[in-house]
Amino acid sequence: MGVLSHASTFAPTVGSDGRRNLVGLDRAELTAAVAELGLEPFRARQLWHWIYHRGATSFETMTTLAKPVRERLSGHFMVRRPEVSRDLRSEDGTRKWLLRMEDGQQFETVHIPEEDRGTLCVSSQVGCTLTCRFCHTGTQRLVRNLEAGEIVAQVMMARDALDEWPAPPDGRLLSNIVMMGMGEPLYNYENVAKALKIVMDGEGISISKRRITLSTSGVVPIMRRCGEELGVNLAVSLHAVTDELRDRIVPINRKYPIAELLEACRTYPGASNARRITFEYVMLKGVNDSLADARELVRLLKGIPSKINLIPFNPWPGAPFERSDRKQIERFADFVNAAGYASPVRTPRGEDIMAACGQLKSDSLRLSAAERAAMAQVIAEKEAAQSL
């Protein structure tokens, strides 16, 4: 894919001390890694258990391995998480981490607690190659793809913070994953797929594919492959019902227009009434929120097992749009619901720490003066409140 050439390359699995990070290695790679040290293959199974099931952060805690083996492993490898540069908590319980990697690049991860589950919003890139006009991340150029280990590490870091190793069978604080953070997951498919396969492994982190949703802006050629190889839930960032408007606010539409995108949704492997495709639709005042838009949305989605998430626009400094009025959102939702489509209106979460949908943007790149001032005020207020 030509777009991937915009991302600089980096090998974060090797630390500044020359040791290789085992986080992000799959079973075959772990087996090869221990073989390089002349260790028996069963050591890879032990490491898998300690790293991905128990959440070990050092070899010293891996007590089923003999001390000489632990020392040998420690001399060549590490089990490292990203550095937490900032940890903010919203008044509604949402938590946002700014994570720093070995090369100094930073990105954000968000945990959203609810009564019956806890959802982690995971990033796939530093910045984003897309320029969706309603998304704060889209104002930040793509720096690089995240490696598989950096994607898996977000889940592991969140479990560290939630004290959830090993994960309980029921009542998990981290029960669901949405690939809806920074970046377009399907433009980093190889690393995303590798990471999710590790996350889904039943003898490790063990989060079911039924509890994982991957969101795409419409990278049509990779959608089928995602369904066939991963079987995760699919969410599609639609946001407009005409190519004219979607070309403007979701520019990837110029490459993969609505008709082509919806055909890929109709043929997405596993899509059924039991496993519906989620269409995300951000509500922009006076732009895409009329009843005429609602009627066209219903017409477009006919025959696709669907539900529609209506997302009130979450503003950010310098945003070119406003949130639709509440009554207009309700009228839109009522029409779509009456047509037979579940269309819940998403409650904005974490707005006070810029953690809501469409608000993520890392500190890796310079912000404008207005953005810096706004973010500085938000951060100062939150850190002051949390220190009380």
Rank of each mutant, 00 (worst) to 15 (best):
E190T: 08
A319Y: 03
L120F: 09
R20I: 00
K209I: 03
V155E: 12
E29M: 09
H53M: 08
A369L: 15
L174D: 09
V236H: 00
V250A: 14
P168K: 13
T109H: 02
F59H: 03
L230V: 05
N191G: 07
E203S: 14
M179W: 02
R246F: 08
R254F: 10
A193H: 03
M156L: 15
T57R: 15
P68N: 04
L360C: 06
G358A: 11
R70G: 11
A319E: 06
T63F: 06
N288M: 00
N314D: 10
D325C: 02
S58L: 02
K255G: 03
S85W: 10
G118L: 06
A44W: 01
A148E: 02
P320Y: 00
V192R: 06
Y281P: 00
P113T: 02
A28Q: 11
N288F: 01
M1V: 01
E322W: 05
E114C: 04
L88D: 04
M375C: 00
W50E: 10
V345A: 00
L367N: 01
V378F: 05
M200D: 09
I329L: 05
V220E: 03
M223Q: 13
A384L: 12
T139K: 11
R349W: 02
T31D: 08
E381A: 14
V250D: 00
R276D: 08
E147M: 12
A384H: 12
R81Q: 11
V79H: 04
T278K: 09
L365D: 08
L297A: 10
V110R: 04
L196M: 03
P12W: 01
R211H: 08
G340E: 11
D293A: 13
R323Q: 12
I177E: 03
A356V: 04
M375P: 01
A356C: 07
S90T: 12
R266F: 01
C226K: 05
A376S: 15
E29F: 08
A195Y: 05
V79W: 04
C132E: 12
E263W: 05
H111D: 06
E60L: 09
E60M: 01
I258T: 15
L262D: 06
P166F: 11
E164Q: 09
R372H: 04
S90A: 15
P312S: 12
L301V: 10
R141M: 07
A274D: 14
H136N: 14
T242M: 02
A28E: 15
A271I: 06
S5N: 07
R27S: 13
F279Y: 13
V287E: 12
L22Q: 05
V34A: 14
D92T: 11
R86A: 11
Q359C: 09
T63K: 13
L37W: 00
L25K: 01
N233D: 08
T94S: 12
R45D: 15
G231A: 02
V79C: 07
M156W: 03
E322A: 08
G227H: 06
T63N: 00
L291F: 02
E108T: 06
A235N: 04
R275F: 04
N253H: 00
L300G: 10
K209S: 11
V336C: 07
V287N: 01
Y256N: 07
I207L: 08
L30E: 14
S5M: 05
A339S: 13
I198L: 13
C135T: 13
K302E: 15
K285Q: 15
A66S: 08
I198H: 06
A376M: 03
Y256D: 11
R323W: 02
S90C: 13
T131G: 07
A385R: 15
R326V: 09
R276A: 07
N233W: 02
S343T: 05
